[in-house]
């Protein structure tokens, strides 16, 4: 089936089977590799993308569903230079192995877009769907709160 989708500002005309999941199409047909395959059932959050500005699990979306929509991944967020949030992730050691990091940056970006002054609880809520086995989350929470204080996105 043919459909059209915008990925990080670029238009893509894609031919995919209805059974093809968006995550796989992004990685294999579009070549965007930051959404990761972690559990393939919506539990871990490492496949998170922004779909029309909202985080969704790309492992639980059929590719054909996104016809006409816009997708942003971390490659798009940092294309013109890393965002202040991304810089703060680096300076706060808010990652270790880095596998879940692109998804977590997106979840935090969505939060700060809608709530520029989140509480610690708000940040935990926004990140609760992104599993990280390395960091214990504390440095991530601190990075997001620091970005909020910095008035950044």
């Amino acid at each position: 089936m043919e459909f059209t989708v915008k990925v990080n500002g670029e238009r893509w005309d894609i031919d995919a089977a209805p059974a093809d999941v968006l995550l796989d199409v992004l990685r294999e047909k579009i070549g965007v590799k930051s959404p990761k395959i972690g559990c393939e059932r919506g539990d871990c959050g490492s496949c998170t993308i922004l779909l029309d500005g909202k985080t969704v699990r790309s492992c639980l979306v059929l590719a054909v569903e996104v016809d006409g929509q816009e997708i942003t991944t971390v490659e798009g967020i940092g294309y013109e230079g890393l965002s202040q949030l991304q810089d703060l992730f680096i300076s706060n050691n808010a990652f270790q192995c880095g596998f879940c990091a692109p998804a977590i940056v997106l979840s935090a970006t969505e939060l700060l877009d809608s709530n520029p002054n989140p509480t610690r609880h708000d940040v935990q809520e926004a990140l609760a769907g992104n599993l990280c086995r390395c960091t214990g989350y504390e440095p991530i929470i601190e990075a997001v709160l620091a970005a909020a204080e910095g008035g950044a996105k």
Binding site: G42, T55, V56, L60, G129, N130
Partner: peptide
């Protein structure tokens, strides 16, 4: 609704 899964699921 706030107890259902997490934001990335609740958005969908």
């Amino acid at each position: 609704a706030e107890t259902v899964a997490s934001t990335g699921i609740r958005n969908r």
